[in-house]
Simulated assay, not measured.
Amino acid sequence: MNDNTWKITENIEIPEEAVEMIMLENEKSLTDRIYSVVKRSPFGIAGLVGFSTICGIGMYKWKTRTVSPSIFLTQLRVIAQGTAVGIISLGMLYGMYNDYIKKKKKE
C-alpha cells in the first residue's frame, strides 16, 4: 500500500451534539439500558425467560426421571423447540398487529 493513501483524506469535525449524545449513552444506568433493550425487542426477553424456564424444568426432572436419558433428552428438546416456535409465533403476530391494525387505526 502506498504511504500517500492516507494523506489525501480530509479531517472531519464532529459536531458537539453528537459527542454529547455519545457521552450520554455511555452514562446510562444499567436499568435504563435493560429498559431500552426490552422496549426494542420484548420477545427476545421472552425467549430468554422461556429458555431459563425450560433449563430449570430440565434440571429438576433430570434428578427425578424414570425414563432412559435418551428419551428424556428427546422430550426436553421437543419441549424447547415448541417453546421457541410459540415465542416466534407470538412475536410475528405482535408485529403483524402493529403493522396492519394499528396503522389502519391511525389513518
Rank of each mutant, 00 (worst) to 15 (best):
M1Y: 04
M1C: 05
D3P: 14
D3V: 02
D3E: 06
N4E: 08
N4R: 06
T5K: 08
T5R: 11
W6C: 06
E10R: 06
E10M: 03
I12E: 02
E13C: 07
E13H: 08
I14P: 01
I14H: 01
E17K: 09
E17I: 09
V19W: 02
E20Q: 14
M21S: 07
I22F: 11
M23A: 13
L24H: 10
E25A: 15
N26M: 12
K28L: 04
S29F: 01
S29M: 06
R33G: 01
S36K: 11
V37W: 06
K39Q: 04
R40S: 12
S41G: 11
P42V: 00
F43N: 10
F43A: 04
I45A: 14
A46R: 13
A46P: 01
G47K: 14
L48N: 09
G50Q: 08
F51H: 09
T53P: 00
T53H: 13
I54C: 15
I54W: 01
C55F: 14
G56P: 06
I57A: 07
Y60M: 10
W62P: 01
W62R: 10
K63W: 11
R65G: 02
T66D: 13
T66K: 08
V67C: 06
S68H: 12
S68Q: 10
S70D: 00
S70N: 10
I71M: 14
I71L: 15
F72Q: 01
L73R: 08
L73W: 11
T74D: 02
T74H: 10
Q75E: 11
R77I: 12
V78G: 01
V78L: 14
A80M: 12
G82I: 05
A84G: 13
V85D: 11
I87N: 01
S89I: 00
G91C: 04
M92Q: 04
M92N: 04
L93I: 12
Y94Q: 03
Y94T: 07
G95D: 05
M96G: 03
Y97D: 04
D99N: 12
D99G: 03
D99T: 03
Y100R: 06
Y100G: 03
K102I: 00
K103M: 13
K103H: 09
K103I: 04
K104R: 15
K105E: 15
K106M: 13
